[in-house]
Design a protein around this nucleic acid. Structure first.
Length: 396
DNA sequence: TTAAATGATTACGG
DNA sequence: CCGTAATCATTTAA
């Protein structure tokens, strides 16, 4: 107290001396005992020149400390973070909460339940898992948010406290806060990253069509096979034909395309495996052509007429194999259009069918890799391009 | 439980 | 985009 009195402005005294005195006291603080230092500190704090001095010190510090700060200025927005945010938003993870996990799942199930039963089951499961992820995500996010704010407050309090005894510029506080926020954002980004990964895994697990594949109905495969074997020489349904088939089978056009793609490749790969099937459908087609009844019949028709499925397309590589070593593998021959042959083949699995295979000469269909090239010569009786057969299929 | 069948996807070329 | 060929993941038969 008395110090303050002594430090009071002696009117005529030059300021310089006063300042020098103060600075000396400051310098001397470290050499004094704790109590003394505390007392002096307090005294200095209350000195009337203190604010001015403090400002000066802050300015100096600001100027000298600039080098550090300039390095990391505010980056606008991290594109990576943007992407993550967008994805989380799109997936409904970051969006507005729609209630607790089970509730959301139940709502989803209820919402889609009536329309598409097939869809709803997996979907509700998916939604349930997604809701779990969202819950965790939000909880973690909130935790980080809170921790960040707490920490920031703490640091700011600390700095404010210290600002009474050491020069702390407002910008420094600002910078500190920025650093803290950046640190916490990077943590949040990791959280978002992990969440994104989890969602992606969930998606691939539930939404990937391959994982919830269902076989087509018996009837659908029937229809498809019928078309395939009746157009064996050129099993490439047109757009309209695909449409008809899709409608008839209750599947999509792309599913029809998939089916034909798979069928072609698999048939070509191992004709022997399909010979029996080819036979059945060839006969069916024959019956249907002759009798006009082609739809639906499950029962294997008796081989009667000669409307076999005609020459198949060519296999590029396996034809050689087939010619060279007929009995080696499943490679056999395309289904025959000869009745006797069909007859002999029809009674057994493909093992027995192999024997007649040697009788059959695959002359037409080798050498050219294309499917369609072989079509013409082989198809003796096949209703390949007969509009009638196609039409009859489609009409029914 | 394993192997075959099967629908869907991917990579690549036209 | 449509095709082939390879591959994946599931369903079904053994």
């Amino acid at each position: 107290m008395e110090e303050q009195g002594r430090l009071l402005p002696p009117p005529g005294e030059p300021r310089r001396q006063e300042l020098g005195e103060i600075l000396q006291q400051i310098m001397g603080i470290t050499e004094q005992s704790l109590d003394e230092a505390q007392a002096k500190k307090h005294a200095l704090n209350c000195h009337r020149l203190k604010p001015a001095l403090f400002t000066v010190l802050c300015e100096i510090k600001e100027k000298t400390g600039l080098s550090v700060r300039s390095s990391q200025e505010e980056e606008p927005v991290d594109p990576q973070l943007m992407r993550l945010d967008n994805m989380l938003l799109a997936e409904g993870v970051a969006g507005p909460e729609k209630g607790g996990g089970s509730a959301a799942a139940a709502a989803a199930a209820a919402a889609s339940g009536g329309v598409s039963p097939d869809h709803s089951i997996e979907h509700s499961d998916y939604r349930h898992k997604l809701a779990q992820i969202r819950q965790i995500y939000h909880a973690e996010l909130e935790k980080y948010e809170q921790a960040c704010s707490e920490f920031t407050t703490h640091v700011m309090n600390l700095l404010r406290e210290q600002s009474r005894t050491r020069p702390v510029a407002p910008r420094e506080i600002e910078r500190m806060v920025g650093i803290i926020h950046r640190k916490f954002s990077s943590i949040q980004m990791q959280l978002k990253q992990s969440t994104c990964e989890a969602v992606m895994i969930l998606r691939s697990r539930f939404l990937d069509a391959r994982r919830k594949r269902r076989n087509f109905s018996k009837q659908a495969t029937e229809v498809l096979n019928e078309y395939f074997y009746s157009h064996l020489s050129n099993p490439y349904p047109s757009e309209e034909a695909k449409e008809e088939l899709a409608k008839k089978c209750g599947i999509t056009i792309s599913q029809v395309s998939n089916w034909f793609g798979n069928k072609r490749i698999r048939y070509k790969k191992n004709i022997g495996k399909f010979q029996e099937e080819a036979n059945i459908y060839a006969v069916k087609t024959a019956v249907s052509v002759t009798h006009g009844t082609q739809s639906g019949g499950d029962s294997p028709p008796t081989p009667s007429s000669s409307a076999g499925s005609g020459g198949s397309f060519n296999l590029s590589s396996s034809s050689d194999l087939f010619l060279g070593l007929p009995g080696l593998n499943g490679d056999a021959y395309p289904p025959s259009q000869v009745e006797s042959l069909r007859h002999s083949m029809s009674q057994g699995p493909y093992g027995e069918g192999l024997a007649p295979g040697q009788l059959y000469s695959p002359r037409d269909m080798r050498a050219n890799g294309g499917w369609q090239e072989a079509a013409t010569p082989c198809s003796v009786t096949s209703p390949t391009e007969g509009p009638g057969s196609v039409h009859s299929d489609t009409s029914n």
